[in-house]
Amino acid sequence: MTSSKGPVRHIVLCRFRSEVAASSRLAFFEQIRRLGEIPGIAFTNFQCGPNVSPEGYGMNFADGFMMDFASRDACFTYLAHPVHRAIGTRLIEALEGGVHGLLVFDITLDNHEKPEGKTRPVLHQHGDARSPRAAQPHD
């Protein structure tokens, strides 16, 4: 991301250790959701939960969360906050392989409206080099 303008979706996928109970996973996500109550941290559309995709391409990332920030700067404010860093440290300790059990992906969201019932064309199609199945079209 090169611009601080425009909204950002922050996506985090987690590969928890097998002994970490579902209730503990949800407790982490609730702590993260509550970061939005801290003055100076602002995000919307927080969602969390287990991977329910039937495609089988989740690479064992079985849980995750995402939220939207008004800008890249707002996302950076969240990332730099000491409470976020403390929760992140505990979260990494609960993941299989530590930091290798974490995938963070931020995308810039479009600001324009799309006509109802239509989507934009995919500009750059790419397949997953690990699997020939990934090159097949998806719904």
Rank of each mutant, 00 (worst) to 15 (best):
residue 60 N to G: 09
residue 108 T to F: 11
residue 15 R to I: 04
residue 49 G to C: 02
residue 89 T to R: 15
residue 41 I to F: 05
residue 11 I to E: 05
residue 45 N to Y: 01
residue 133 R to I: 08
residue 132 P to V: 10
residue 122 V to F: 06
residue 33 R to A: 11
residue 42 A to S: 14
residue 98 G to H: 04
residue 56 G to L: 04
residue 135 A to V: 06
residue 136 Q to L: 15
residue 59 M to Y: 12
residue 8 V to P: 04
residue 133 R to Q: 14
residue 30 E to H: 12
residue 120 R to G: 10
residue 15 R to G: 00
residue 44 T to G: 09
residue 2 T to S: 13
residue 93 E to A: 15
residue 66 M to E: 14
residue 137 P to T: 05
residue 73 D to R: 09
residue 107 I to R: 11
residue 8 V to K: 08
residue 87 I to H: 06
residue 44 T to H: 09
residue 32 I to R: 03
residue 138 H to S: 14
residue 133 R to F: 13
residue 97 G to M: 03
residue 70 A to F: 00
residue 136 Q to C: 11
residue 27 A to M: 01
residue 37 E to C: 08
residue 115 P to S: 08
residue 39 P to Q: 00
residue 82 P to L: 03
residue 42 A to L: 10
residue 83 V to F: 11
residue 101 G to A: 06
residue 115 P to T: 09
residue 10 H to S: 05
residue 68 D to Q: 08
residue 49 G to T: 00
residue 109 L to C: 08
residue 113 E to D: 15
residue 87 I to V: 10
residue 20 V to H: 00
residue 92 I to G: 07
residue 38 I to C: 05
residue 45 N to P: 00
residue 60 N to V: 07
residue 102 L to K: 10
residue 90 R to M: 10
residue 75 C to F: 12
residue 84 H to M: 04
residue 81 H to D: 08
residue 14 C to H: 04
residue 53 S to K: 01
residue 65 F to A: 04
residue 129 A to N: 10
